[in-house]
């Protein structure tokens, strides 16, 4: 059997004889954090994304399952009004700009830049949340009228819960960046938070399509 190679991921760690026949590895020279998949946070965040993405996927599957049960969809109501949801798509897309800026700034250790961009994200998040209120009011159905209403409200509700928690995360992180002192790990947090924001953004697009456009499909494509 051959000995393993202890190639360090980033920088050389010094092999030192350890006195019991082997060779010690001095890791003091290694960095104390890392971005991307090097960090544990990245894996944790992706784990949460996998879980929540599955929840969204299953809720959408439920939507189509229920749609397949009857001949009429929506069951007894007009489809949701397009305006607010579509507006939200645009603001979401726009939020990618400060979000990417935050990620970049964090990876450059640019505190001022990260601060600005993070607070910018939080501000746009606030706008999204306010628009959400209007979205709910223009769904044209209630959760307790029929199964269509139930699943639409649930879908939008789940997404809103993510929007809300990520907004809170971002806001807290923004405050943390402003009050300092800041250790390097925080930059990793900013970068991971940006990744999570992309998930919230990306998941909105299919959900938007399902909530707003599936009820408008021409009858040929209906069950």
């Amino acid at each position: 059997m051959s000995d393993p190679k202890f190639e360090p991921g980033a920088e050389p760690a010094l092999p030192i004889p350890d006195g019991d026949g082997g060779t010690d590895l001095d890791v003091a020279v290694l960095p104390s954090f890392g971005f991307g998949h090097r960090s544990l946070m990245w894996w944790g965040t992706w784990g949460m994304i996998a879980i929540e993405g599955t929840v969204f996927a299953l809720t959408i599957a439920t939507y189509f399952y229920l749609r397949g049960q009857g001949t009429q969809w929506p069951i007894a109501e007009p489809p949701p009004d397009l305006l607010w949801g579509t507006l939200n798509v645009l603001v979401f897309l726009a939020s990618a700009v400060p979000n990417q800026a935050a990620k970049r700034a964090a990876e450059r250790y640019d505190l001022a830049g990260a601060r600005r961009a993070t607070l910018g994200c939080a501000a746009l998040g606030m706008v999204l949340l306010i628009l959400r209120v209007f979205e709910f009011r223009h769904l044209n159905c209630r959760w307790d009228t029929d199964a269509y209403g139930s699943v639409v409200w649930t879908l939008l509700g789940f997404h809103t819960a993510h929007l809300l928690t990520d907004w809170l995360d971002t806001a807290v992180l923004g405050v943390m960046l402003c009050t300092g002192p800041i250790e390097g790990k925080r930059y990793v947090d900013v970068s991971e938070n940006a990744m999570y924001w992309y998930f919230v953004l990306a998941s909105w697009l299919p959900i938007y399509g399902v909530i707003y456009w599936v009820p408008r499909l021409p009858p040929v494509l209906s069950p």
Partner: peptide
């Protein structure tokens, strides 16, 4: 063993993070 890791702090809960496939030393973290 081929040897041991050295250089992790004793007064902090410091651990060594390694890479996913090869478990090569990557960074320290507290």
């Amino acid at each position: 063993y081929a040897g041991h890791v050295r250089g992790l702090a004793d007064t902090q809960r410091e651990v060594l993070a390694t890479t996913v496939l090869d478990a090569a030393p990557d960074h320290r973290m507290i």
